[in-house]
């Protein structure tokens, strides 16, 4: 079997210790959360790794809490916990949709939400769902604590705006207004979940008086990072949710996408998927808002 190369390993007991360990470990020190990406990256030697800082012994980094005006999800919360959360299902169905198609059960039981965001895969499942849920991340670093919108964290494939000593501690997702709905749809090579997305889209809507007041659409595997589709969002905002308006937004999403061709799919197929999956995500979002799409 492929063996890991030797590395320094530590299990800090506090966030401060962890930040210090990362800062002293330098560029090749890595945070170990769920490990489902990091260990793979180490085995495939995608990233040089000199030190692994396992943050799972630090208390307080897990759990899903109702803060009233927001939901807090600890960075080390397992994907399975999100998948099974009634609270998240009620407030942010896209996040549950995304959690339930992320990899496979024995990986979801290890993978964490913080790790998924921190890995910054363009094909992230949770990324677009968090973006359309207006989630922000709380980050602890050498300069103290700060909060940033998840959509602002992504810089490039595998790259975030986090420094190498920053640690995401939790996610804060504002509680949605009445009329909110969201959904996530992805397509993997086997035609379903348990696969890396050839394309994935999340959508959220706020419907008031039969009109889409607010709309967020985020795409995965359709550009270098999980990102919002501004033209598509604009196309739907202020419109009644009909097959026609949803379809127009989906067309626009395909324009917003900047897919590349790779081993998983060609650029042109991805562009088609951007449209089809956006339409399906929008339909799911409208349905979960309690509204319906006029034929």
């Amino acid at each position: 079997m492929k063996r890991l190369r030797q590395f320094a390993y530590s299990e800090p007991a506090t966030l401060d210790e962890a930040v210090a360990a990362l800062a002293s470990g330098g560029e090749d020190a890595r945070v170990l959360a769920g490990g489902t990406d990091l260990i793979v990256d180490m085995k495939t030697e995608r990233l040089p790794t000199s030190a692994v800082v396992n943050i799972k012994k630090i208390p307080g980094l897990t759990g899903i809490d109702d803060l009233g005006e927001a939901t807090r999800i600890g960075a080390l919360t397992k994907v399975t916990a999100i998948e099974g959360s009634q609270l998240v299902q009620q407030r942010h169905p896209a996040l549950v949709d995304a959690a339930s198609v992320l990899a496979s059960p024995p990986v979801r039981a290890l993978a964490t939400i913080g790790g998924n965001v921190g890995r910054a895969s363009p094909a992230s499942d949770l990324g677009p769902a968090l973006i359309v849920s207006a989630a922000s991340a709380r980050i602890r670093g050498t300069m103290g604590e700060r909060e940033e919108l998840v959509e602002g964290l992504y810089v490039g494939p595998g790259q975030t705006s986090l420094t190498c000593s920053d640690i995401i501690t939790d996610f804060i997702i504002p509680s949605p207004p009445v009329g909110f709905g969201s959904g996530h749809v992805k397509l993997g090579k086997r035609g379903g979940g348990t696969d890396i997305a050839m394309a994935g889209t999340s959508a959220s809507v706020v419907i008031e008086d039969g009109v889409v007041r607010d709309c967020k659409i985020a795409l995965a595997s359709l550009g270098p990072i999980p990102f919002r589709a501004p033209t598509a969002e604009a196309a739907l905002s202020g419109q009644a949710p009909t097959e026609e308006t949803l379809g127009a937004a989906a067309e626009a999403a395909a324009e917003d996408a900047s897919p590349i061709g790779d081993v998983r799919a060609s650029a042109s197929y991805r562009a088609t998927l951007a449209r089809v999956l956006t339409l399906r995500a929008l339909r799911a979002a409208v349905a979960s808002s309690g509204g319906w799409v006029v034929a």
Partner: peptide, 22 residues
Amino acid sequence: VGECGTCVVLCDGEPIASCLVL
């Protein structure tokens, strides 16, 4: 690399891919 599930063991009752756990 966590793709085949062959290495599954139960951890606190839950199936996990033991090849990805330190």
